[in-house]
Design a protein around this nucleic acid. Structure first.
Length: 267
DNA sequence: CGTGGCTCCTGGCGGC
DNA sequence: TGCCGCCAGGAGCCAC
């Protein structure tokens, strides 16, 4: 599930495989994923150009074709990038295929088609158009605190709202709340400054650790909820059991014994 | 303004 | 063994 760490890994993958190579041709295999550009136009925009740089904001990946022309990828739930030799064995679920002049190709694959492909003049323009919040790795504590204080709903919903903070999805939101011992239903504006500071630090640490480990869950610390995400499973921290509930429409895993609702007077 | 519910899509899995 | 229905998950959209 591509959340911020996965998209950061895709960015590095694109940078290490596909930068500064002339694009011979491109083909759109499924145009329902195109957001603001037609298949013909996208193919024409890509052909003959090179990816010059990459940028990431939240769960969005931007690839520069020209200073005022960027390809924008969103990976939905099952999106992936695959760089491969030749185009004989095109990967399953390829939605956009980009052929380079070195005989290699880059495929944007997406089994469930929740991903989106678009074109924009500038990443910043796209971010403003979509009204995205600050990137979860870039946001500072002041902005984080203000954002949390303004949100009256459950803290889990706040963390998932890409307009407030961009990059966290269902799994990493649960992880951050678990590691900070916050109940996912707690109102975010009811959290003390001390708790918010801890949550802020944990979000950064969790995302950075995940990136360092290539977003490979099998390499994550055993103390994380992510690797113990089984209903009724043992909490890695206390004798309690992992439970599930729905928060903000999402299945939420948490430990009811170490993630308590905050008391009226803080904490 | 905020939120809950529905929708898109597909494969995997539990139940009968 | 087969089939049905449910679920996962990001995010836009609509109704309240």
């Amino acid at each position: 599930m591509p959340e911020l760490p996965e998209v950061e890994i895709y960015k590095r993958y694109l940078e290490s495989t596909s930068l500064n190579k002339r694009i011979e041709s491109a083909s759109v295999e499924r145009n329902q994923m195109l957001f603001n550009v037609g298949a013909d136009k996208l193919e024409r925009l890509l052909a003959g150009r090179k990816f010059q740089s990459c940028w990431r904001h939240g769960k969005y990946l931007f690839a520069e074709l020209r200073p005022d022309l960027w390809l924008v990828l969103h990976f939905g739930m099952t999106g992936n990038l695959i760089y491969f030799k030749g185009d004989s064995e095109k990967p399953h679920y390829t939605r956009l295929l980009i052929r380079f002049n070195n005989g290699h190709s880059l495929a944007f694959t997406d089994q469930r088609k929740f991903g989106k492909i678009s074109i924009n003049k500038q990443p910043q323009e796209f971010i403003e158009e979509r009204n995205l919040g600050p990137d979860a790795l870039q946001i500072d504590f002041r902005a984080f605190k203000t954002m949390a204080a303004r949100s009256r709903g459950a803290v889990k919903g706040t963390l998932l709202d890409q307009h407030r903070i961009a990059g966290l999805g269902n799994l990493y939101a649960d992880e951050a709340l678990f590691q900070t011992r916050i109940h996912p239903q707690a109102a975010s504006c009811a959290l003390s400054e001390q708790t918010l500071r801890l949550l802020f630090k944990n979000i950064k640490r969790i995302l950075q650790t995940a990136i360092k480990r290539n977003a490979d869950y099998t390499e994550f610390p055993k103390s994380w909820l992510l690797v113990n995400r089984v209903k009724g499973g043992k909490c890695p921290r206390c004798p309690g059991r992992i439970a599930t509930t729905k928060v903000a429409g999402r299945t939420t895993y948490f430990c009811p014994s170490c993630q308590k609702m905050p008391q009226r007077n803080g904490q």
